[in-house]
C-alpha cells in the first residue's frame, strides 16, 4: 500500500494513456513518451522503496533520473520548435550547458546531495521554452484550433509543473531540512502532488488529442 501514492497513481494512469493512445504512433518524439513514463514510474516506486525499506536517501536515484528528464523534455521541445525551422545547434548548446552545470553541481556537493541548482535552472529553462512556444503560436499567422492541439496541452502541462514548482525548488534546501521527519504531510509534498496531477492530466489529454489528430490524418502514423 505504501507504493500507492498520488504521484505513483497519476504517473501510472498517464503511462496507461500513453500506451493506449500512442502505441501506434510513428513519430519518435511522441513514441518516446511510453519508455519515459515507464522509467518515471519505476523511479518513483524505486524511490519509495529506497526511502521506506532501505532507510536511506534516494537523491542518487533522482540525480540519474534528472538526466533522462532533461534529455527527453529538451528533445521534445526541440521537436516542437523544429516546425518553426530551429536548428539542432540550440538543443546541443542547451544540453552541453546542462551537462557542465550538472557536473559542477555534483562535484560541489561531493556527490552527496540532489542536484537542486541544476534542477532549478532546468525548470526555469523549461518555463522559458514553454513561454516561447506560446509566443510562436501567437505570432503564427496560421490558425490552429488549440483546444485540440496535442503540443499545446503538453506544453501547458509542462509549464504548470515547472512554473508551479519554482517556489518549492528555490526553498528546497530549507524545506528538506524542515521536512525530514514529516515528509508525507509537508507543503512540498502537497504542492508536488497537485502539480503532478495537473501535469499528467494535461499530458494525458495531449495524448488523446494526438490520437484524434492521427486518426483524422493517417499520414501521421
Amino acid at each position: 500500500m505504501i507504493f500507492i501514492t498520488v504521484n505513483t497513481v497519476s504517473e501510472l494512469l498517464c503511462l496507461l494513456a500513453a500506451i493506449v493512445f500512442l502505441n501506434k504512433e510513428k513519430t519518435t518524439a511522441w513514441r518516446l513518451f511510453i519508455p519515459f513514463l515507464l522509467l518515471t514510474c519505476i523511479v518513483e516506486v524505486a524511490g519509495i522503496y529506497i526511502r521506506e525499506f532501505v532507510h536511506t536517501s534516494n537523491y542518487a536515484l533522482y540525480n540519474v533520473y534528472v538526466l533522462f528528464e532533461c534529455g527527453f523534455t529538451s528533445y521534445f521541445f526541440f521537436y516542437l520548435y523544429k516546425a518553426y525551422h530551429y536548428k539542432p545547434i540550440w538543443l546541443f548548446t542547451w544540453l552541453g550547458l546542462f551537462a557542465v552545470m550538472y557536473i559542477i553541481d555534483l562535484l560541489h556537493h561531493n556527490f552527496g546531495q540532489f542536484v537542486s541548482t541544476t534542477a532549478s535552472v532546468m525548470s526555469v529553462v523549461f518555463v522559458l521554452a514553454s513561454l516561447y512556444f506560446y509566443y510562436l503560436k501567437l505570432k503564427d499567422e496560421h490558425f490552429e484550433p488549440l483546444i485540440f492541439s496535442a503540443p499545446f496541452w503538453w506544453v501547458s502541462g509542462t509549464l504548470f509543473f515547472y512554473f508551479g514548482s519554482t517556489a518549492c525548488n528555490n526553498f528546497l534546501d530549507y524545506l528538506s531540512e524542515y521536512e525530514r521527519i514529516t515528509f508525507s504531510r509537508s507543503i512540498r509534498y502537497i504542492i508536488y502532488n497537485i502539480l503532478d496531477i495537473v501535469m499528467y492530466i494535461f499530458w494525458s489529454y495531449a495524448f488523446i488529442c494526438r490520437y484524434r489528430q492521427r486518426k483524422s490524418s493517417p499520414s501521421l502514423g
Binding site: F163, G164, S165, F171, L195, V198
Partner: peptide, 11 residues
C-alpha cells in the same frame, strides 16, 4: 512558500 506556489499555479 504555499502562497507563492498557489500564485505560480494561477499564473
Amino acid at each position: 512558500i504555499g502562497l507563492t506556489s498557489i500564485i505560480f499555479l494561477i499564473a
